[in-house]
C-alpha cells in the first residue's frame, strides 16, 4: 500500500525583523526537519502546545506556506511548488475558527461553489447536483445555501467548512483544531460526522489538536510535537498510557481528569525555550527531570522504541 502522505525532512524557517533591503535580523525555526508517513485511510493525530509548530506544519502540507527544506509527496506525487490550487484537489484544510473561515459577504452557496468552479471547472447544473450531494452527507439542509455565515451557530458553520473542504474531493483532510472553538455537546456531533465521512469517502485525516482526549478518541496514531520537532510518535492506544518521551508524559499528566487529585505535574517556575535563542541539545532538557549533560549538548534523533513507537530522547521512560 502506498502512503497517502509522505513528508521527507520538511522544515520551515521564518525571518524576523526583515528590513527593506538586506538580510533579516534573526531566523526562527518554526518547524525542525520532520519526516512522517501517513497511510491511506489512517487518522494521524498531531498534538502539542501553542507555538510548537503544528499549525505551520499543516499550512505547509496544503501549500499555503512553502517549506524551507524537504519534500512533500501526496499519493506518490511530488508537490514542491507551494501552489494551493495544485494541492487543493489532493488535500484540503478545515480551519479552527468556523466563522472566520467563511467570507462574511458571501452566501454559503457561493462559498461551496468556488472549489467546484475553480478546481474542476464544473458547469452550473453539475455544481448544483454536487452541492446537494455534499450537503446531504454533512447533514445540512439545502435551504441554508442562500444564507450568510453570521446566521449560523459554531457547529453549523464548522459543518459548512467541512462541506467546502469536501467539495474539492480531496484524498486527505487536514483538520486544524476543528472542534476547539465548539461547545462539548456540539463537539461530538462534528467529530462523529468526521468519522462517518472518512469511512464514506475513504479519506485520510491529519487531526491537529491541543486536546489529548479528543485526539486519542479519533486517531490511529499520534505525533507529539514540541518546539518545532516531533518528539514522539506511536499508536494512539499506547502513546498516552505508555509514553516514552518525558514531554508526552507531562502532557498526559497535565490534562485535568475527573477523579485525579490536583497537583502541578512539574516544577512551578519552568518556562518554554525562547525561539529567538534556542537551546543547544534537546529543547525539553530545561523542563525535564531526567535531563543529563548529553541532553544539553546533543539534540536527540527520533529512534524506534518498540513496535511502531518512536521517541526522540536520550533517556526514554520505561514502557
Amino acid at each position: 500500500m502506498t502512503a497517502a502522505l509522505r513528508l521527507e525532512r520538511i522544515s520551515k524557517t521564518f525571518p524576523v525583523g526583515k528590513p527593506l533591503i538586506g538580510a533579516p535580523r534573526a531566523l526562527v525555526r518554526a518547524v525542525r526537519p520532520v519526516t512522517l508517513e501517513v497511510e491511506t485511510g489512517e487518522t494521524l493525530g498531531v498534538v502539542g502546545e501553542s507555538g510548537c509548530g503544528k499549525s505551520t506544519l499543516a499550512r505547509m502540507l496544503v501549500g499555503l506556506e512553502p517549506p524551507s527544506t524537504g519534500a512533500i509527496e501526496i499519493e506518490g506525487q511530488q508537490f514542491d511548488n507551494a501552489d494551493p490550487a495544485a494541492f487543493g484537489r489532493m488535500i484540503q484544510y478545515v480551519f479552527q475558527d468556523p466563522i472566520s473561515s467563511l467570507n462574511p459577504r458571501k452566501t454559503v452557496r457561493q462559498i461551496i461553489e468556488t472549489p467546484l468552479r475553480r478546481l474542476y471547472g464544473m458547469n452550473r447544473a453539475d455544481r448544483a447536483a454536487r452541492i446537494s450531494e455534499i450537503f446531504d452527507s454533512v447533514n445540512l439542509r439545502e435551504e441554508f445555501l442562500d444564507r450568510y455565515p453570521h446566521e449560523f451557530s459554531g457547529g453549523q458553520a464548522q459543518r459548512i467548512g467541512i462541506a467546502r473542504a469536501l467539495a474539492a474531493a480531496p484524498r486527505i483532510l487536514v483538520l486544524d483544531e476543528p472542534v476547539s472553538a465548539l461547545d462539548v455537546s456540539v463537539q461530538a456531533q462534528v467529530l462523529n460526522l468526521l468519522a462517518r465521512l472518512k469511512a464514506e469517502f475513504g479519506l485520510t485525516y491529519l487531526f491537529i489538536s491541543h486536546d489529548l482526549a479528543v485526539v486519542e478518541a479519533v486517531s490511529d496514531r499520534v505525533a507529539v510535537m514540541y518546539f518545532g520537532a516531533v518528539v514522539e510518535i506511536g499508536s494512539a492506544k499506547r502513546i498516552f498510557n505508555a509514553p516514552r518521551h518525558p514531554y508526552t508524559r507531562l502532557l498526559a499528566d497535565s490534562a485535568p481528569v475527573v477523579g485525579r487529585p490536583l497537583r502541578a505535574p512539574e516544577g512551578k517556575d519552568t518556562e518554554l525555550p525562547d525561539p529567538l535563542n534556542p537551546p543547544t541539545g534537546c529543547a525539553f532538557a530545561a523542563r525535564c527531570p531526567r535531563a543529563s549533560d548529553l541532553c544539553r549538548r546533543v539534540e536527540p534523533e527520533l529512534k524506534p522504541m518498540e513496535e511502531d513507537q518512536l521517541a526522540a530522547c536520550h533517556h526514554p521512560l520505561d514502557p
Partner: peptide, 23 residues
Amino acid sequence: KRLIACVPELGQGRRELAAIPGL
C-alpha cells in the same frame, strides 16, 4: 448526565463520542 458523557477522557482509546443533538 449527557454533558458529562460528551466529554472525552484520556485513556479510553479510540471510540465514538456521545453528542447531544440540537442546540
